[in-house]
Simulated assay, not measured.
Amino acid sequence: MHGLDIAEVFLASQLESKLFVLSNDQIKQVLNSFESTPPAHNLKVVDFYEVQNDDQNDWADAATEVELKLRNAGSEVAFVKEVTFYTVKHWQLLTDRNHRAVDVSATYDISISEKTGSLAKKKIHHEIKPQETDRIRFKLHSKFSADPDGLSLYLIQVNVHYNEEMAPASFRQTLVNIRPPQVSEGSYFGGYSNETLKNNKNLAREILKLHTDGVGVEDYVIEVLESWMLAPDTL
């Protein structure tokens, strides 16, 4: 068709030889043509979890701390403007202790409501450089009068709003135990009521199912819930 005297297969080794006689700038230009350009704005929530306090006896600050791990996979700086905590659902695991409570004096960063569908917002100003990972902590508290020795469990959907025109970065729904703003100064324990047994077993069954479906739950909460699954239905 083209009036060639010789026509043969052009081998990969021959292509390689042609490439490497070019200048470095030319080689880079050729190779970059096969690489996808990262989007300008692409912030991801890598992880969201409750920070464990090693000193369980330190009640000087009883706030629940959670940590967000963020990664900017974009080519431009991500300006984080706001973080929201959406209460998907709330449960309370009871102990049937009768408490005489004393308030703890502390300052918290954000207040979470136990009401389903409530939204807590926190305005922040935080920059994450391109292709870098960062971690942000929040202290959570709630006005809900929870059992100081029980668990007050909040199913939370966290969203990170950044750069004016971008959709928020989100992470899977996560269960967080938000400790109440008071500790027990003294209590007596007279045994569990049948109502409490029913409440706690139903709660454990529901949350363990959520965990199986992919909701993030801390190991110590799983252990407590699994122990309640072994409890009798009535006493």
Rank of each mutant, 00 (worst) to 15 (best):
K139N: 08
N163D: 12
V158G: 11
L175V: 00
Y162S: 01
R135G: 11
S142F: 00
Q157K: 15
G186S: 15
P181T: 00
R137F: 06
G186W: 11
I178K: 02
P168V: 10
I136M: 14
D149Q: 13
I136Y: 08
F171L: 02
K143V: 07
S170G: 11
P180K: 05
E185V: 12
V158Y: 02
P168F: 07
N159A: 15
L151V: 14
V160C: 10
S152T: 05
A167G: 12
P168W: 07
M166C: 09
L151Q: 14
A167H: 09
I156L: 12
G150T: 10
E164L: 11
A146L: 08
S187V: 10
R135M: 12
K143G: 02
L155D: 02
K139Q: 15
Y162I: 06
A167W: 06
A146P: 09
V176Q: 01
Y154Q: 04
R135F: 12
R179P: 06
L153G: 10
E165M: 07
S145D: 02
E164D: 13
Q173K: 02
E185W: 13
S145G: 05
Q173V: 02
L155M: 11
Q157T: 12
S142P: 01
E165Q: 11
F138R: 10
S184L: 04
A167Q: 15
L153C: 07
A146F: 05
L155V: 08
F144V: 02
S142T: 12
L151I: 13
Y154E: 06
F171G: 03
L151D: 13
S184V: 09
A146N: 04
Y154G: 01
E185D: 15
F171H: 09
S187T: 12
G186L: 11
Q173R: 05
I178S: 06
K139A: 10
K139S: 12
Q157G: 11
F171K: 08
N177E: 15
G150F: 05
E164Y: 03
A167D: 14
L155N: 09
L140T: 01
F138L: 11
L140G: 02
P180G: 01
P168I: 08
M166L: 03
Y154L: 01
I136F: 14
V183K: 14
